[in-house]
Design a binder for these strands. Structure first.
Lengths: 207, 207
DNA sequence: CCTTTTTCGTACCGACCGGTATTTTTCACC
DNA sequence: GGTGAAAAATACCGGTCGGTACGAAAAAGG
C-alpha cells in the first residue's frame, strides 16, 4: 500500500524532503539574521543540494513565499482564531500579549517571522512582498473586527476611529514582537504592552 | 594664508573631499535600503575611488562609525537639546512628534538613520555597533531626565517606573520613526503618537 | 539487457562583495 | 632637472551570491 505498483511513476523515485527543507528554511529565516540566510546556507543546513531545492521551489522568492505560507498556517492562523473567539476583550488581549512575549524555545524563536519579513521588505521578491501585504491587510482587518465587537459590547470605547485604532494595535504588536526578536527582557516588553494598550482599557466607565 | 608654504606637506596634495563623501554616505544609508548601499556603491555615488575612501576611513565599519558620528551631530544633537530645554512637557512632546513625523525632503529623508541602524544591527561592524549602543543609552537617559523634570513639576504622573517609562517613550519614538521610514502617512503616524503618549498626558488632575 | 523517464548532485556561470598590491601622478626640496 | 615622499586610481584578490548545464544514477517497461 505504501508503494502501489500501479501508480508508481516511471523514473527515479524522488527523495527530496520538501517538508523538512521548508521547516529548516522557516527556522533559519526566523532565528538568524536575514542576510545570513542565503539559499546556499539553507541548502547547507537542510543537507540538500542546490539544484534540488531550485527544482522544488523555483527560486528564492518562491521559496520565501512557501515559507510564509507555512508560517502563516502554523502561527498566524491560531492568532487569527484567538482574535475571532467571543471571549471578554481583556482575556483575549492578555492571551495575545502573553503569546507575543513568550520566551524563546528551541522550536520557536522569539519574535515573529511575519513581522521580520515586513521590516525587511526590500529583501523580499515580488511574490513574497505581495503575500506579506495581503497578510498585513488581513491582520489589521482582524484587529478591527475584534475591536468592533468589543465596542458593541461596551467593553472598550474606541479612542480614535475603528481603522486608526486597529492600525495602532497592529503597530504596537509589531513593536512588541520587534523588541522580543531583538532579545529584550520579556518583562520589560510586557510593561510596554500594558502602557500601550491602557488607552483602550482605561475608559471612563471603569471609574 | 590658505596654503602656508612653511606647513605645506611634502608630497602630492590631497584632493579627497572627506566631508562631501561623508554626506553622500549619510544620504545613501539614510535614504536607500541598507544592503543596496555597499562601499562600491558609495564610491560610485560620491565619485571617489575605492582605495581613496579606504585610505580616508579605514574600512566599512569605520566609515559607518564616521557616518553615525556626523549624523549624531547634525540630527540627534538638536533633539537632545530640545529634550533638555525647560519648556512645558506638552510643548516639548508636540515639538518632538512634529519633528519625527515630518515629511520627506530632498535633504532629509523620512525616518531616522539611527533607528535604521538599530534595527539592522547585524549589518554593523563592532565599532559602529558599540557606538549605536552608547547612543541608545544616552537617548534613554535623556528621556528619563525629561520625564523626571516633568514629574517634579507635576505636569505628568509616571504610569510606571521612571526607567520603564523612559524605555517606553524610546520604543514609541522608534516605532513612529520606523513607520515614517516605511512611507506611512504622517497623519496616521501622528494619530498613533497621540494614542501612545496619552498614557502620559491623560492624568487624573486633568479631569 | 537495453531504452526511456525522472531525479540526482557536481561543477560551473557571471555578478558583486569588502579589501588591497601596484603603478602612476603630483608636489616640495635640492 | 633630479629625487624622494605622499596621494592618486587601475586592476586585481579570494569569497559568496542566486541560479543552472549537464552527466550520473535509479527506477519502469519492453
Amino acid at each position: 500500500m505504501a508503494d502501489d505498483p500501479t501508480t508508481r511513476p516511471r523514473g527515479r523515485p524522488k527523495t527530496f524532503d520538501r517538508s523538512r527543507t521548508l521547516e529548516t528554511a522557516i527556522d533559519s529565516y526566523w532565528r538568524h539574521d536575514f542576510d545570513a540566510v542565503s539559499v546556499n546556507e539553507i541548502c547547507r543546513r537542510a543537507g540538500v543540494s542546490k539544484p534540488g531545492l531550485y527544482r522544488e521551489f523555483g527560486n528564492e522568492d518562491q521559496l520565501m513565499d512557501a515559507v510564509l505560507t507555512r508560517y502563516s498556517e502554523i502561527v498566524l492562523g491560531p492568532v487569527m482564531a484567538t482574535l475571532a473567539e467571543d471571549r471578554p476583550f481583556r482575556e483575549t488581549l492578555n492571551a495575545l500579549i502573553e503569546f507575543v512575549t513568550r520566551e524563546e524555545t528551541p522550536e520557536s524563536p522569539a519574535g515573529c517571522l511575519f513581522v521580520k519579513m515586513r521590516s525587511l521588505r526590500w529583501r523580499l521578491g515580488p511574490i513574497t512582498r505581495g503575500h506579506v501585504d495581503r497578510l498585513r491587510d488581513q491582520t489589521v482587518a482582524a484587529y478591527a473586527a475584534w475591536l468592533e465587537r468589543a465596542t458593541r459590547r461596551d467593553e472598550i470605547s474606541l479612542p480614535a476611529s475603528l481603522d486608526a485604532t486597529a492600525r495602532y494595535v497592529d503597530a504596537q504588536f509589531t513593536m512588541l514582537l520587534t523588541q522580543m526578536a531583538a532579545g529584550e527582557d520579556p518583562t520589560a516588553v510586557r510593561s510596554h504592552a500594558a502602557l500601550a494598550f491602557s488607552v483602550l482599557t482605561n475608559t471612563i466607565h471603569e471609574e
